[in-house]
Lab assay of single mutants.
Amino acid sequence: MFKRLMMVALLVIAPLSAATAADQTNPYKLMDEAAQKTFDRLKNEQPQIRANPDYLRTIVDQELLPYVQVKYAGALVLGQYYKSATPAQREAYFAAFREYLKQAYGQALAMYHGQTYQIAPEQPLGDKTIVPIRVTIIDPNGRPPVRLDFQWRKNSQTGNWQAYDMIAEGVSMITTKQNEWGTLLRTKGIDGLTAQLKSISQQKITLEEKK
Score class of each variant (00 low, 15 high):
98 R>I: 04
123 Q>R: 13
139 D>V: 11
131 V>L: 12
204 K>Q: 05
67 Y>V: 07
43 K>C: 06
190 I>Q: 07
8 V>C: 14
193 L>P: 10
38 T>R: 00
34 A>G: 07
176 T>D: 00
152 W>E: 00
68 V>A: 03
89 Q>L: 05
186 R>M: 06
37 K>W: 07
104 A>V: 09
79 G>K: 01
208 E>L: 13
99 E>T: 11
56 L>A: 07
34 A>V: 11
21 A>Y: 14
187 T>K: 12
91 E>T: 07
154 K>T: 06
166 M>H: 01
93 Y>K: 00
91 E>W: 04
77 V>G: 15
87 P>A: 13
102 K>I: 10
70 V>W: 05
82 Y>A: 01
26 N>T: 07
154 K>G: 05
181 W>S: 15
95 A>Y: 07
33 E>Q: 12
13 I>S: 04
3 K>L: 04
68 V>Q: 15
19 A>Y: 03
104 A>G: 14
138 I>H: 10
207 L>P: 08
179 N>T: 12
129 T>Y: 09
207 L>W: 14
30 L>A: 08
60 V>L: 03
167 I>R: 07
144 P>A: 09
180 E>T: 05
205 I>E: 13
124 P>S: 13
110 A>Y: 13
67 Y>K: 04
40 D>K: 08
20 T>G: 13
67 Y>S: 07
202 Q>P: 14
60 V>K: 00
114 G>I: 09
51 A>N: 13
66 P>A: 07
83 K>N: 06
105 Y>V: 00
181 W>I: 15
30 L>Q: 08
77 V>R: 01
198 K>T: 09
106 G>H: 00
40 D>N: 10
116 T>E: 15
175 T>W: 10
143 R>M: 06
1 M>L: 01
155 N>L: 01
63 E>T: 08
92 A>W: 08
64 L>I: 03
209 E>Q: 08
51 A>L: 14
112 Y>K: 01
95 A>F: 07
40 D>M: 14
60 V>S: 15
78 L>T: 06
194 T>F: 03
52 N>T: 11
186 R>H: 04
168 A>I: 15
127 D>F: 03
124 P>Y: 06
137 I>W: 15
174 I>W: 03
39 F>L: 02
3 K>C: 01
98 R>L: 08
59 I>P: 04
107 Q>P: 05
122 E>V: 10
175 T>S: 05
26 N>G: 08
193 L>E: 05
170 G>I: 00
72 Y>P: 00
134 R>F: 00
107 Q>G: 12
188 K>T: 11
193 L>M: 10
187 T>V: 09
139 D>P: 14
18 A>H: 13
24 Q>F: 05
181 W>T: 15
172 S>A: 11
153 R>G: 01
105 Y>D: 04
1 M>D: 00
42 L>V: 15
164 Y>M: 07
25 T>P: 09
59 I>Y: 03
72 Y>M: 01
174 I>L: 15
94 F>Q: 06
145 P>K: 05
183 T>A: 09
203 Q>V: 14
98 R>N: 10
132 P>D: 07
149 D>S: 03
154 K>V: 07
83 K>T: 09
172 S>H: 00
76 L>G: 02
157 Q>Y: 07
156 S>L: 02
56 L>H: 07
127 D>V: 10
104 A>T: 12
131 V>N: 10
51 A>I: 13
85 A>L: 05
16 L>R: 01
80 Q>S: 09
205 I>W: 06
39 F>E: 00
150 F>V: 04
75 A>R: 00
138 I>L: 09
101 L>A: 15
104 A>I: 05
132 P>N: 11
66 P>D: 14
36 Q>V: 10
205 I>L: 14
12 V>E: 01
200 I>L: 15
42 L>P: 02
3 K>T: 02
179 N>V: 07
90 R>S: 05
185 L>Q: 15
73 A>Y: 02
15 P>H: 14
113 H>S: 06
206 T>R: 12
175 T>K: 03
175 T>M: 12
38 T>K: 01
37 K>H: 12
196 Q>R: 11
159 G>F: 07
197 L>V: 13
62 Q>Y: 06
185 L>P: 12
4 R>A: 10
1 M>A: 00
61 D>K: 02
14 A>P: 09
66 P>W: 03
204 K>N: 07
86 T>K: 12
33 E>C: 04
127 D>M: 05
112 Y>N: 09
171 V>F: 04
203 Q>T: 10
138 I>M: 09
50 R>S: 10
43 K>H: 05
23 D>T: 08
53 P>G: 12
148 L>W: 01
75 A>E: 01
91 E>N: 08
43 K>R: 10
207 L>E: 14
71 K>P: 05
81 Y>D: 11
110 A>R: 09
169 E>P: 00
100 Y>H: 12
29 K>R: 08
154 K>C: 15
29 K>I: 15
63 E>C: 02
6 M>F: 11
190 I>E: 08
202 Q>I: 06
124 P>M: 15
87 P>V: 08
91 E>R: 04
178 Q>V: 02
202 Q>N: 06
112 Y>S: 06
37 K>D: 11
138 I>Q: 12
91 E>Q: 11
23 D>P: 14
24 Q>S: 13
101 L>D: 15
201 S>M: 09
119 I>E: 10
142 G>Y: 14
15 P>K: 15
87 P>E: 08
53 P>I: 06
74 G>H: 01
168 A>D: 03
159 G>W: 09
129 T>W: 10
16 L>T: 06
137 I>N: 11
94 F>S: 08
37 K>M: 10
14 A>I: 11
177 K>G: 14
119 I>V: 14
42 L>T: 09
84 S>G: 11
23 D>S: 15
10 L>P: 01
183 T>D: 11
200 I>N: 08
14 A>D: 04
135 V>K: 00
4 R>E: 06
189 G>E: 12
56 L>M: 15
139 D>T: 14
98 R>A: 11
43 K>V: 06
75 A>I: 00
51 A>W: 06
7 M>K: 05
148 L>C: 15
142 G>C: 08
6 M>Y: 05
88 A>P: 11
141 N>A: 08
90 R>Y: 03
87 P>L: 10
107 Q>D: 07
9 A>L: 15
163 A>N: 15
171 V>T: 02
50 R>G: 12
93 Y>V: 05
180 E>W: 01
34 A>R: 03
29 K>A: 12
134 R>Y: 01
116 T>H: 15
97 F>R: 00
143 R>I: 05
24 Q>I: 12
179 N>L: 05
181 W>F: 14
20 T>D: 11
27 P>S: 06
116 T>S: 12
44 N>I: 11
57 R>Q: 08
8 V>L: 14
145 P>C: 05
24 Q>C: 12
151 Q>T: 05
115 Q>D: 05
1 M>R: 00
196 Q>G: 04
199 S>L: 12
80 Q>G: 09
138 I>S: 08
189 G>W: 02
40 D>W: 05
149 D>P: 00
44 N>C: 14
157 Q>R: 08
131 V>S: 12
151 Q>H: 08
116 T>N: 15
191 D>A: 08
171 V>A: 03
88 A>I: 10
55 Y>N: 11
7 M>C: 04
178 Q>C: 03
131 V>Y: 08
119 I>H: 09
146 V>E: 03
85 A>C: 06
70 V>C: 10
71 K>N: 05
11 L>H: 00
8 V>Y: 15
203 Q>I: 14
88 A>G: 11
107 Q>V: 12
123 Q>C: 14
136 T>L: 13
95 A>G: 11
116 T>D: 15
84 S>T: 11
155 N>T: 01
30 L>W: 09
41 R>L: 03
